[in-house]
Structures are given as structure tokens and as C-alpha cells.
Design a protein around this nucleic acid. Structure first.
Lengths: 251, 251
DNA sequence: TTGGATAGTGTAAATTTGACACAAAGCTAT
DNA sequence: ATAGCTTTGTGTCAAATTTACACTATCCAA
């Protein structure tokens, strides 16, 4: 929309949009950043929707997804991965959907294919008021989401599955944590993504054997219990590891 | 195209196409069904391309992919899975590409997003002359493909990766084999998908432990060596297995 | 000082993986 | 018919990995 002035010369493609499943982690559970479409839209259906927009004709899909993310959160340089394309011809059923689409300049009658992405953002970096859109945006724990506008619930499901599968192959979970984190937080993160409990000792053993964490001398402060050591993700060691064709972070 | 008369009332969407990576297995190696675009197109670039087409406004993406497959091979009810969406604005560079696009009724100047699928077909079921298109179609071993038209080489790469990854999680390889097959054929199939040698005895041990194969009393006939026992994929046992949340066919 | 909360640690049994070689069965050519 | 070629089919042992499981240490707050 008007946010990104650079794009104003190019035309919106009325047939293709991107939607972003923006994952965060509040140190307790996996959350998703949703847009509240407001009272009016809610008259006929779920208020909450994934952030998304039509694409411009001069940008590629990844760029469009990054733009949507940037417009909403002000973040860039973020882990981002395509989930896939969605596009039943009858995606849009309701009058309220049409109103909403008009408000984001989409053509309500057009058949729209949407390309879904998921992104992993460290919640600590997110400034809620980075853009005017963000006023209507909220983090919602994934487990509490029971319905979404359009086909967004289906997209969310696919994104969760993809993330679950991906984390077994690459240690991308770090993108959801602050730079310094504890093993317990990482543990909890894996549990909430994989949606199953993991034995504490076995988890720690396995993650440490990978040797992609740097333990800092620093400890947690101000917690009402034994403070944990803090760790950092070690990018270089990870690169070494993957360059040997390693692809099994098997959980 | 004109092949499928049912669709003639609906309009083609000029912005969205599907491309299919149709995998086969000739009992030696993994192959892909490619279209030869002919001499004229080849003047400026690779002749070979993935089969694909624009979508109609009244069909969903999976339907479109199935249609492309059906038009080319006459096959339906085939294992099919989305790879993802591809769509750089500058996908189409060459004059020859434009000519080709016109010939399939696409708008050469339009910005086209393509949604890629891969499908697994049992080569034994494929009748090469099922459609007029098939005259220009040929099975090509994946290892011999060095370039393709448009961005199709990139798409092929993504499809191979997806297949490789998927086969570690679900035993979809059976879709590439005839109903009755030998363990050696299955072994060879896994090797060619994973692109690495697998120890014969270890492979057989692992695959048998899954207990999703039914051994038939029948033997191979007419081979110039000790004949192998024939096996069938056992759908029911597989269903039992997956319904317990099993997702590791770990190779 | 005590109580509450979470951090951090080791071991033993079971399972899985990886490496490795030779006899059996059928076909072909003589 | 026989010898030779080709591929099938099979077992074991060592190493690595996985699973299950419980108690002490450290900090904060009351």
C-alpha cells in the first residue's frame, strides 16, 4: 500500500497475492501475527486474517513477501520461506470478504491465487508500532487459533506443518529467539513447534552434540530460581556442518 | 488447450500457469517427461521444457495440474504434489520464448506466476501415444538434463529436492513402480532418488521391517539370472502405520 | 533461614546403524 | 550337459544412537 513509495510506479497484479504466516515465540509458546479486520468484516466471518497483499508486477514473490512483512513490522532481513500456492476459485464467499478486499485495492471479483510464506521473527525485535497497520495486528498463540478469514486457516496449518518438518532438517528455530537464550527456552521452542514433549536431558545432549551453540560466561539475571547460562547460535560452526552435507537434526 | 473440451467455456487466467515435473522410473534410473518445443524455439535456447499450461479461472491448482498431466499422458488418479510457486518478473527473456508462449495462447508480455507440481507415474502404465502432444514428449533421465527452457531447470531442481526429502518421510516411491516389483528394483529406485548408494542388505532389512510389503509367491520370469521374488505395496498396513503418527522412513 | 522454582547432570538397556562375503538359482553359449 | 555369467538372498558383530529415568545446585522471595 502507500507505505512503500518505491513501488508506486508499478502496477498491482490483480490475480496474485502473498500471505505471510509470521511466527513468533513468546518464550512460552509459538505465536502468529494476525490482522484484525475489524467489526465490519466480522459481521459475516472471522475477524482475524493473515497479513498479505497483492504483488506488484515488477517484484518477485520473495520480494513481495518481504515487503508485506516490512510494511507490517518494519523488519527486514528475516528468515522467510515459501509454503506454497493456494487458490480455489471459490476462495471468497462472503460480502464482508469483498468489502475487505476492496479496502486493500484488490478486485473482489477476480480469481486470486495466493502464495503463502512463513517467516520467523525474534519477538524481542518487533516494535508493535512500527507501522500504522500494526495497530490492528496482534500476536496470537497458534494453539488458540480456531478459525481465520478466507482460506487462511488452511494456510496456517500448512505453514505449521512445513515449519515442523523443516526444523527436523535445519536448526532454523534460532531465528525465533533473542540473540542470547537459554537451553530451556530452546527446549520449550522445539516442544511447541513439534507439538510434543521432549525429554530434557536427551534434548540438551542432542543439541549440544551438534556443536552449533556457543556458551557464554553470562548468566540469566533477576529470575526467581537458579539462573541459566546463556547461549548464542554459532553461525560459522553451523555452516561447517551443513557444508558436509549434514541434514539431520533429528527430533 | 483444445484437448479438454469441458473447459472451453471458462477463461484462461493470463497470469497463472502450472508446470508439471512428471517423474518416471525405467527400472534403472529416475526420468522426467519433457516436451520438445522443436527446432524453431531451439534457435535461441533449450528445446526441452516441462509440460505446463495456463490455468482456467474455474479450476483450482490441483485440478489444473491434473489436467496438464491428463492432456499429455492420458493418465489420471496419479500421485501429485505441489512443489511451490515460481515467478520472477523477468522469467521470459527470449524472442523464442515469446513465440512459444503465443503458441499455447499465453500472453507473452504478461507477468506469469507458475505453480510447479511433481507427479509420480508408473512408466509401465504410460501409453506414449495417448495424445497428440505426446509426439513431442520424451522421457529423459534426470541426470542427463543440463538445461531447460525458461526457469524450468530451477523448478526441476526444486522438485528433485522435494521428492528426495519426501521419500524419507513417506514411502511414495511405490507410485513409480509397477504393481509387482522386486526388492532390487525398489532398492535401485531409492538410490536414484536419494542420489547415493545404499547397502543392499541394510536396505532390504529396513524396508522389510516396515512391514508394508506383501511378498507374493510369484517369481520373475525370463531373466538371465536367478529370478527374484515379486512384492506388492500393502496399502492397508501402510495406513495402520501412518495412523500411529509414524513419519520416519529414514534413509 | 526456609521454601519454591528451575537448572543442570549420568547411566544402563534397547535399538538402530553400518560394514562386510558367499552360496543359490536361473539363463546362455558351447 | 556343463561351465560360466549374472543377480538374488541371507547373518553377524561392533559402534552409535536412542530412550527412560531422579536428584542436587542455585537463585529469589518471604
Amino acid at each position: 500500500m502507500q507505505h512503500n513509495q518505491k513501488k508506486i510506479n508499478s502496477e498491482l497484479n490483480p490475480n496474485v497475492s502473498v500471505d505471510c504466516v509470521i511466527f513468533g515465540f513468546d518464550l512460552e509458546q509459538l505465536t502468529v501475527l494476525l490482522i484484525d479486520r475489524g467489526e465490519i468484516s466480522s459481521a459475516f466471518g472471522p475477524r482475524m486474517a493473515l497479513p498479505g497483499n497483492l504483488i506488484y508486477d515488477n517484484e518477485n514473490l520473495d520480494m513481495a513477501a518481504n515487503r508485506v512483512l516490512d510494511e507490517l513490522t518494519g523488519l527486514n532481513n528475516i528468515y522467510l520461506e515459501q509454503v506454497g500456492a493456494f487458490g480455489d476459485p471459490d476462495r471468497i464467499h462472503k460480502e464482508s470478504d469483498r468489502e475487505w478486499l476492496k479496502s486493500i485495492r484488490a478486485e473482489p471479483e477476480a480469481r486470486v491465487i495466493t502464495v503463502a510464506y512463513f517467516t520467523l521473527v525474534p519477538m524481542s525485535n518487533y516494535k508493535p508500532q512500527a507501522s500504522s497497520f500494526a495497530k490492528n495486528a496482534d500476536w496470537v498463540p497458534v494453539n488458540e487459533i480456531k478459525e481465520l478469514a478466507f482460506d487462511h486457516f488452511e494456510i496456517l496449518q500448512a505453514a505449521k506443518d512445513k515449519l515442523k518438518q523443516k526444523i527436523k532438517i535445519q536448526p532454523i528455530g534460532f531465528n525465533l529467539l533473542p540473540e542470547k537464550f537459554t537451553l530451556s527456552q530452546l527446549h520449550r521452542l522445539y516442544e511447541s513447534i513439534l507439538d510434543k514433549p521432549l525429554d530434557k536431558r536427551n534434548f540438551r545432549r542432542k543439541i549440544q552434540k551438534l556443536d552449533i551453540l556457543s556458551s557464554l560466561r553470562e548468566k540469566q539475571r533477576g529470575v526467581p530460581h537458579k539462573p541459566s547460562l546463556l547461549y548464542e547460535f554459532n553461525e560459522e560452526k553451523y555452516q561447517e556442518l551443513t557444508q558436509t552435507g549434514f541434514d539431520n537434526f533429528g527430533f
